[in-house]
Simulated scan of single mutants.
Amino acid sequence: MGTDNQTWVREFILLGLSSDWDTQVALFVLFLVMYLATVLGNFLFVLLIRLDSRLHTPMYFFLANLSLVDVSYATSIVPQMLVHFLAKHRVIPLLSCAAQLFFSLALGGIEFVLLAVMAYDRYVAVCDPLRYSAVMHAGLCARLAITSWVSGFVNSLMHTVITFQLPTCTNKFIDHISCEILAVVKLACVDTSSNEVAIMVSSIVLLMTPFCLVLLSYIWIISTILKIQSPEGRKKAFHTCASHLTVVALCYGMAILTYIQPRSSPSVLQEKLISLFYALLTPMLNPMIYSLRNKEVKGAWQKLLGQFSGLTSKLAA
């Protein structure tokens, strides 16, 4: 009897955002356009960094990593969501659900650690510019990037294994747009207090610790900028950090709203909207933010477009 009650379902049903067909079609078109813009924008941004030697610096190395994380994160959620918009039954097999949870959780963790690493890079650039090249050498950059990726995947593997060991009995309706960890844990028909504590602890380690490091870095950066006598110098120093600060505010703000707050909130709708924000809007905006606010990137785009235009003219002639 006990073994019958504590079973593991073989598939889940995602409730998604809406059950109205017209709404689903409209959302499909909107999110498809946003996803394609995300993939294209980040791909072109990584290609630009690869092709322009002026962008072969630590900051753009980390930005290329961030773009890869953004595209991968969006891909772990959005294609399956788009299929479900046009499907009668929004079924996702157990293994697919586990894979989605694993990759989305891992990539989210990697992004937070990467943003902290980028804050350290900006700290060295502003507070110790003469030693920047010596401190942020290629070996350190590679180690910091590898640490970001490994920490995200290790944390995710641990949570995925623990989460999918929980018996769900007959519960298989996930009230979310994807197999998000909190939504899946809610399906368990046993006490999940230890799981919720583990999620909170890992959120503190992989979210709040990097966030505190970002804050500490920017306290030093701002205090250094304020000591610069020249208004032009202060403006230039601030511009080197403005794009990163914007992305930090977007990413950390939404994550803290989701994972570091009382049990009673956020609402299910809030959770879905925040997940959409992460999966679509943030990855789409990141390359735009860095392209619009960085003179080096603007110059690289102009150079690339000029070369492309010249090549097109030669071929036409």
Rank of each mutant, 00 (worst) to 15 (best):
M1F: 11
T3M: 12
W8K: 06
V9D: 07
V9S: 11
R10G: 15
F12Y: 15
L14G: 05
G16I: 02
G16Y: 02
S18V: 03
D20P: 01
F31W: 14
M34I: 04
L36G: 00
S53K: 04
A64H: 02
S67Q: 13
S67R: 08
L68F: 12
L68M: 11
V71C: 01
Y73I: 10
S76P: 04
L82A: 12
F85V: 03
L86T: 10
I92T: 09
L95V: 12
Q100G: 15
F102K: 05
F103A: 11
E111L: 09
V113M: 09
V113P: 04
L115D: 05
V117G: 08
V124S: 01
L130K: 14
S133D: 09
A138I: 08
C141G: 04
I146W: 05
V161L: 13
P167Q: 08
C169M: 07
H176F: 06
S178E: 13
E180Y: 13
V184P: 02
L187K: 05
M200Y: 11
L207G: 15
C212V: 13
V214A: 00
V214L: 03
L216S: 10
I222Q: 00
I228F: 12
G233M: 02
K235S: 10
A242Q: 12
V248I: 12
G253K: 04
M254D: 06
Q261L: 09
L269D: 10
Q270Y: 00
Q270F: 09
K272W: 03
K272V: 02
Y278S: 06
L280I: 06
L280R: 06
P287D: 10
L304T: 14
G306I: 00
Q307P: 00
S313D: 05
K314G: 00
A316C: 04
